[in-house]
Design a protein around this nucleic acid. Structure first.
Lengths: 304, 304
DNA sequence: CACTCTCATACGTCCAATATATGAATCAGT
DNA sequence: ACTGATTCATATATTGGACGTATGAGAGTG
């Protein structure tokens, strides 16, 4: 049996007339008769009662017509379904991000817009540290992740910079430097620092330490934290100063004052990573398109 | 798209390997590749990722594989469904019968056995008078009916005698004739009669009246009733005597005594009628087979 | 009875599914 | 790096079956 048989059968059932059904199908009446006979032979029962004028369905024909119509509809839907999955309209995407990512307005905006445009894509979100995210992407626990700069091998992963923002100095509000418009790193040389622990935030940790070295000193770290939100709170409690991505200003915590850094300004990069072999996965392509569309002008770099 | 494409696609998806799938399908690998390509072209998306060793499904392929498997199963089921409907295993049958039919043991037996054998045939039962049943069959309100003899045209209907039983005299229990072993009709000539009303039970009514005429008298009808059960009760209450199908003995009503009639014995025929055009409807054929199988030896007659 | 309508049958044609042969790409092993 | 094996893709030939044309059969209809 082929779908042709079902299509022809349904046409005859609808028309109640071989000749008209054949015309509607764009074939001749004799081949249509043959195809229906073939179907009846295969089912072992006649589907139509042949009358002097036209035909009517038998009981078996009526039963089969219902099924045939449903099957033809299902075939259409299956095609459409496959097309939608292929186009990325349907499916799932598992996104990972570091703790600090949602503080930059672009990230929630991207997520919101993605869910609006592709409501049939199951969207899951997970928060981990950068090394945890790299492992999660590698191990196929998430499909893509927003991470801070990665050290070490990234073979098998593709990476693309999404945001490259300035870092700011975060001071306890009562701090003597808090009234200055901007602060040079050197001015912080004697301050106690609260920093990312190197184990989980190596990228930004190293960026900050390197910037301080360039300014001529080595920061005195009195406390490490693995979450950027913890750092803000530790600064607020007066434990020390820190250097944080500009977007962390949006955390609105009392007791912390942010101030720009005089040049050279250390940068906080936020990048998207994914498995290179999945580069053409449609939802991934859609997400990258969307980021490119919504991201501010600053040219992002990309490497394989 | 044809079912061939789905069958081939599922085979490749199962095997993860074109060459092996082709062998399993009993065709060569190149035609299989072409058919899959054709399917992919129609869907506008690739279904497999071709690897150095074998192939794996893409996301769209995985989605389509589920649908394709379901569709192929549905096609199988639709065939089976049609076959079952055609064989009479599945469907419905609407049966009508007169009030007196269930008193003959054959009728409940036939109904019980039919439902046991064909549990997937929806069975409905309706009780009417003989003329009402003839109209119901004609008007397609029921498919088949057990009726008493019909007068008048029966064109378009087929009829087959199911039971041809003797009639008995029904007397009030205290009646002087009740002690006799058998009774001649002539002995009833002066008795008041309770009979079927001619309007609804013309067949038996006329049979009885004719038998009396042959015996040499015309029965004095004091009461008519349209239901055989009512007649039994009227006789029990002493209103008169009646002549009833032998099977009515099974009604076990106190106050009524049944006695055989000396020859010639009037007969009560119970017949099955159906629309002639539906003679080949499978459930109808099954029911007639069953009756023939369970009916006692007496040869039944049949006319078109 | 002639005529029409409709589906079935007979037979020829042609396309498309299949077979055969070969190519291209990748990988394993020497 | 080269060779051979594996596997899917491509090219060309073959053939079965779907389709078209012509005609028949049966049942109304005027």
């Amino acid at each position: 049996m082929e779908l042709r048989h079902l299509r022809y059968f349904v046409a005859v059932a609808d028309e109640g007339h071989f000749t008209r059904a054949a015309a509607q199908l764009g074939i001749g009446q004799p081949p249509l008769s043959l195809q229906i006979q073939q179907l009846e032979r295969e089912l072992g029962t006649s589907l139509f009662k042949r009358l002097p004028r036209g035909v009517v369905l038998t009981d078996a024909g009526r039963a089969f017509a219902q099924d045939a119509r449903r099957i033809l509809r299902d075939v259409e839907q299956a095609s459409e379904h496959a097309r939608r999955v292929a186009s990325g309209e349907l499916g799932r995407i598992r996104v990972g991000m570091i703790n600090s990512a949602p503080f930059h307005p672009l990230i929630p905006q991207v997520i919101r817009e993605f869910r609006r445009r592709y409501p049939d894509v199951a969207f899951s979100l997970e928060e981990r540290t950068t090394p945890g995210l790299v492992a999660a992407v590698r191990g196929d626990a998430v499909d893509v992740a927003f991470v801070r700069p990665i050290h070490g091998s990234d073979d098998g992963l593709s990476i693309e910079t999404v945001i490259d923002e300035d870092m700011l100095v975060a001071l306890p509000s009562g701090h003597p430097l808090a009234h200055r418009a901007s602060i040079s790193l050197l001015a912080l040389s004697i301050e106690p620092f609260v920093l990312f622990s190197r184990a989980v935030g190596a990228g930004l940790h190293d960026e900050i330490v390197a910037a301080c070295r360039v300014a001529g000193f080595s920061p005195r770290v009195v406390q490490e934290a693995s979450q950027v939100t913890s750092i803000v709170n530790l600064v607020a409690s007066g434990l020390g100063v820190s250097i944080l991505p500009a977007s962390m200003q949006h955390m609105h915590t009392d007791g912390v004052t942010f101030r720009p850094i005089t040049r050279p300004v250390p940068k906080a990069r936020l990048s998207l990573i994914w498995r290179h072999e999945d580069r053409d996965a449609p939802q991934l392509v859609r997400l990258r398109e969307l980021i490119r569309e919504l991201a501010p002008a600053p040219r992002r770099q990309r490497r394989a």
